[in-house]
């Protein structure tokens, strides 16, 4: 079983990564096992849970549905790379303020999804926020507080606010 490595060059959390990856390797496994970025989680094999959601070129993606090889040439951002050091993005801070984290397993994926939403629509209403969570299962039930957190970001953004 001669396994051909696939050469890839990608940016992960702002740092260039040049390496060779096994052709079958999923992006989520590359991030977790090869790069040690275990903030990105795995919850299913079938694409439903969204625990593995990251940003690829700023767009939310389920990293269990992508090969590491496919990330060649792309910019990947995981939860570890959202903020500098111990700082928090406004969204992370809002998750904290509004208790949008319980066990925290779904949190990295939800942060990636909601980051994408806010980039597209800086002032989403509650129904839009809920729909944008369709790809993220939280079994602890933080959804309502995620709505509050995203609304806080919208309201605090310059020029934002008001439904």
């Amino acid at each position: 079983m001669a396994e051909q490595g696939v050469p890839v060059t990608l940016t992960v959390n702002g740092r260039e990564v040049r390496t060779s990856v096994p052709p079958y390797l999923l992006l989520v496994d590359f991030l977790r096992d090869t790069l040690g970025l275990t903030g990105t989680k795995v919850g299913c094999e079938t694409g439903q849970c969204g625990a593995c959601t990251i940003l690829v070129d700023g767009i939310s993606a389920k990293s269990c549905a992508m090969l590491a090889a496919q990330a060649d040439g792309h910019q990947v951002t995981t939860v570890e790379g959202m903020a500098q050091g111990s700082a928090m993005t406004p969204l992370q801070a809002a998750f904290w303020d509004k208790h949008a984290v319980q066990c925290g397993y779904c949190t990295p994926g939800l942060l990636a999804s909601m980051t994408d939403l806010l980039q597209r629509n800086p002032d989403p209403n509650a129904a839009e926020i809920r729909r944008w969570m369709d790809g993220n299962i939280c079994r602890c039930g933080v959804y309502q507080n995620v709505v509050r957190a995203v609304r806080q970001v919208a309201e605090q953004a310059p020029g934002g606010g008001g439904e």
Binding site: L37, T38, G39, T40, K41, T78, V79, E80, M82, A83, S86, M88, Q92, F95, W96, D97, H99, V101, G104, Y105, T107, P108, L111
Partner: peptide, 15 residues
């Protein structure tokens, strides 16, 4: 606010 959250929000908490 929860003391647990920063490491979870930064993806640093180990499962």
């Amino acid at each position: 606010k929860r003391r647990e959250d920063p490491e979870l929000l930064h993806g640093q908490a180990k499962f």
